[in-house]
Write a protein that binds this DNA or RNA. Structure first.
Length: 624
DNA sequence: TTTAGGG
DNA sequence: CCCTAAA
């Protein structure tokens, strides 16, 4: 029996919304003939065929590591030639590299990406033509920090720029990177704003085995109608003869219903999937209903402004330390690298100013649902309206300090702790949906549908993905995971158009795919710096617990650590836990700054005492 | 939000 | 410290 390779594709990019639900890990099985000499080339072809369908006019599929001298090779991959030659020339291949079709050497790195929940390598879709607003919605940053810039926020309001829209709060943006892309210039008058067009990325990750090594196509390349592929699954079972319709022509996806081998989830409203490596990832996001659409200029709301504007998307999506998050499901972030000065600088006292470098923004994901019978133009309008509405009305800026949300708006930066250089005080900004909890009409009965993210749902049928929204939105988690992605026949069968009316702005987590989790969600929330408790802190803690007992950590915090901003009641609770543990283990096993034995004795005593008290309480009211 | 526990 | 179910 031939071993099999399961390939997982996570596609992240502006066209993610038209991907099948749960398709982030959509698998495409491909042939697995190890001895084929052109595996890599074929692999690429497959990828192109898969990805190609999502290209829009004038775009091309470009792998990450291309060599410059082979830029022309990229043109072979242009699915639809750009009509306007001059336009295409305006959009540079911002990557320093160009696709090497022969060797696909650039893909080798992908082989190292085995964990789905780790940010995978990706392929870039490089537009030859101007980006549409929607295109840039789900941009994901490039792999390397500062390596490239992408159209981010700007794209969201493509066509909506107007003078002064950037002007707002007392912050300044400084251009980190500019790119000459005339086609990306907004129709407004943001002459000063130049953007690199390096929008969407496709993510591509191998499940357990290398992605390309074993690839072979049994069928024709992407130019044909069908690709027959064979591969292995995680269990080593040979999976034969799966066909991948050439997406370029058929605009159909074929994905395996079994997404990623994940099996279990927690019923916490955001179903998660546990991947091979044990990491979890949200398989869908909470969704949210957009209220009436009103156009507003995003940048009138934007707290960052300045004559110098530029966006830079740095990449921490791939950060290994991406396990944290705020629990919200934000779309692949748009990172805005900027230099922001304090809104209220003290004249003449430079030291009191804070220089903040905003490296990233979290932007809620937008999903759009629209009937397939709607016109392209209406789609554009819907998206634009949705975007402008969300950006204008539905967002506010959140600030994260040390990974914690700063909620008290009345405090000064100094009080809050934003007194050091932005680099060092671990400050993050994000765009959050202003309103919470929007439910889908058809999902009222389902828990876990509500979302922090503002989403519009693109009717999957638009992309020839047969997913009946009502059904898809209501099936339970397990069902969703295993049946959401339809097989080809289903896709074909699903031709029932929705009413050709105004596109319903509804929300469904088309983003079953956790872009945000893999890529965007956690990048801001860095782990807090470790700050071991000093002996005096331990002393204070012990004393407070002696007085207040265990189980009243908020009181302990207020009582003894009220001015220690970096100590939360959870911290204190945790510290107490470790203290008890420390007191119980042998001194040789203890680490860190030694805690006086006297304190540890008190810990044990106090712990025993309050444990006893708790036991008594339990006895007094036995309810369980 | 807090508490309580597991990771 | 993180994450999060439960309360």
């Amino acid at each position: 029996m031939v071993s099999q390779t399961r390939l997982e594709y996570g596609f992240i990019g502006y066209q993610v919304p038209v991907f099948p639900r749960a398709s982030r890990s959509a698998r495409v099985r491909v042939p697995n003939r190890k001895n084929s000499g052109n595996n890599e080339k074929h692999a690429f072809e497959i990828l192109v065929s898969v990805a190609g369908d999502f290209l829009q006019e004038g775009e091309t599929f470009v792998p990450p590591n291309c060599k410059k001298d082979q830029q022309n090779a990229c043109k072979n991959l242009v699915l639809k030639e750009q009509e306007d030659e001059s336009q295409s020339s305006k959009c540079n291949l911002s990557d320093k590299e160009t696709y090497n079709e022969k060797t696909l050497s650039g893909y080798h790195q992908i082989r190292t990406v085995n964990k789905f929940s780790h940010a995978p390598d990706r392929f870039n879709l490089k537009p030859y033509s101007s980006l549409k607003g929607f295109d840039k919605l789900a941009n994901v940053s490039g792999r390397k920090a500062n390596h490239s810039s992408e159209v981010g926020i700007s794209s969201l309001i493509s066509g909506e720029f107007s003078e002064g829209q950037f002007e707002d709060a007392g912050a300044e943006l400084s251009i980190i990177q500019t790119v000459k892309s005339g086609t990306l210039q907004p129709t407004g008058s943001l002459d000063a704003l130049e953007m690199d067009c390096k929008p969407p990325h496709y993510f591509c990750s191998g499940s357990k085995t290398s992605l390309f090594k074993d690839w072979t196509t049994l069928g024709p390349s992407r130019h044909s109608d069908t690709i027959e592929t064979v591969s292995r699954d995680d269990n080593g079972n040979y999976v034969a003869d799966q066909r991948i319709k050439n997406l370029s022509s058929s605009r159909r996806w074929r994905v395996s219903p079994n997404l990623n081998g994940g099996a279990s989830f927690k019923n916490d409203g955001k179903r998660r999937k546990i991947f091979h490596d044990g990491r979890t990832s949200y398989s869908r996001q909470r969704s949210k209903r957009i209220s009436p659409l009103k156009r507003r200029d995003f940048f009138n709301q934007c707290p960052f402004s300045g004559s110098d504007r530029g966006f830079q998307l740095d990449d921490r999506f791939n950060s290994a330390a991406d396990k944290r998050g705020d629990g919200n499901n934000y779309c692949a972030a748009i990172r805005v690298a900027s230099s922001v000065t304090s809104p209220h600088p003290h004249p003449g006292s430079r030291d009191r100013n804070v220089k903040l470098r905003i490296k990233s923004f979290k932007v809620p994901e937008l999903l759009v649902e629209i009937p397939t019978t709607a016109t392209v133009g209406s789609l554009k309008r819907s998206v634009m309206e949705a975007v402008t509405t969300v950006l204008g009305d539905g967002l506010h800026v959140g600030i994260l300090l040390q990974g914690k949300k700063v909620r008290d708006d009345s405090k000064t930066l100094l009080q809050t702790g934003i007194s050091r250089d932005g680099k060092h005080c671990n400050l993050g900004f994000m765009l959050e949906p202003r309103h919470a909890q929007i439910k889908l009409p058809w999902c009222l009965g389902e828990q876990g549908i509500t979302s922090h993210a503002t989403s519009f749902t693109l009717d999957p049928r638009t992309s020839s993905i047969s997913l009946d929204p009502p059904v898809a939105g209501c099936i339970n988690g397990a069902q969703r995971d295993h049946h959401l992605v339809p097989s080809l026949p289903n896709i074909s069968a699903s031709t029932t158009p929705l009413p050709n009316s105004v596109p319903a702005i509804s929300v469904e987590a088309l983003a079953v795919v956790p872009i945000h989790h893999r890529a965007g969600r956690r990048e801001f929330v860095q782990r807090r710096i470790r700050r071991p408790f000093s002996v005096s802190e331990v002393e204070a803690l012990v004393q407070a617990v002696e007085k207040l007992g265990t189980g009243r950590w908020r009181d302990v915090k207020l009582h003894a650590f009220d001015n220690a901003k970096h100590r939360t009641y959870v911290d204190l609770k945790d510290k107490w836990k470790t203290l008890v543990h420390t007191a119980r283990i042998s001194p040789q096993q203890r680490r860190g700054e030694p805690v006086p034995l006297e304190l540890l004795d008190r810990v044990l005593a106090v712990h025993a005492y309050w444990s006893q008290q708790q036991a008594k309480q339990q006895q007094l009211k036995p309810g369980v």
